[in-house]
């Protein structure tokens, strides 16, 4: 669509995708069956980087680019992740922050319903940032920064702004409920689903 909202072109994908990223000039899609596929500009699949079904595919999967050549497929309940090298067509399994994941998972009475990772993103240096659940709103949003080997290099606690409209049982202060995170340079943005946005500066 142009500025008036009109579609200017359509690309039919070879496989239905839940999520797409652009890396190294290619479209990379996470299909609704859990496979990770590279598409050309006409929407045809040119390479399947990771076949479906994957182990533990019953949990939330997140796809995030780490660099022009590497992407991360994160299995959101356990911290297991695949680092995919788009150029080489290889993948490496890593376990991200097992202690943090285990601790967060233990806070849920029904682990099968746990959503440990709210959102994932990365910075220009190839570090991944994960927003994790399981913390009290009064303690802030919990975000970890990890390297491509899965090691935690920093923990962050983001003080959450409040809104009167969010106040209620379980959240009397009305803290925003963090949903998505993105970085840009040293800026870190946290949003919720209802349009509140908080900006932080990474040290």
């Amino acid at each position: 669509m142009d500025g008036g909202g009109q579609v200017i072109s359509r690309v039919v994908l070879g496989k239905a995708a839940n999520e797409m990223i652009s890396a190294n000039g290619q479209w990379i899609g996470l299909s609704n069956t859990g496979s990770v596929d590279a598409y050309n500009s006409q929407g045809a699949i040119v390479k399947t980087l990771l076949a479906a079904p994957q182990a533990l595919v019953d949990q939330k999967l997140l796809l995030t680019p780490l660099s022009d050549t590497h992407i991360m497929l994160l299995k959101g309940r356990t911290g297991q992740a695949e680092i995919l090298d788009i150029a080489a067509g290889t993948d490496k399994q890593v376990l991200i922050a097992p202690d943090d994941f285990a601790t967060a998972l233990a806070t849920y009475s029904n682990p099968k319903q746990a959503v440990i990772v709210f959102s994932a993103t990365s910075d220009k240096s190839g570090y991944a940032f994960l927003s994790l659940s399981g913390s009290k709103l009064t303690d802030g949003g919990f975000i970890i920064k990890v390297d491509q080997a899965g090691n935690v290099v920093q923990h962050y606690r983001c003080v959450l702004p409040t809104r009167k409209r969010y106040a209620g049982a379980g959240n009397p202060e009305g803290f925003m409920l963090s949903s998505l995170i993105r970085t840009f340079g040293n800026q870190l943005y946290v949003t919720d689903k209802q349009g509140a946005v908080a900006k932080y500066l990474l040290p």
Binding site: T107, S109, G134, D139, C158, G170, G195, A196, A198
Partner: peptide, 26 residues
């Protein structure tokens, strides 16, 4: 809020860096 409140407290990391928002908007 109720869904989040139903979980128990996550232990704070002593090494966590606390970040305050420099801006928030809607």
């Amino acid at each position: 809020a109720l869904a989040l409140a139903s979980v128990t407290e996550y232990p704070l990391h002593a090494q966590s860096i606390k970040l305050a928002p420099v801006k928030d908007f809607d």
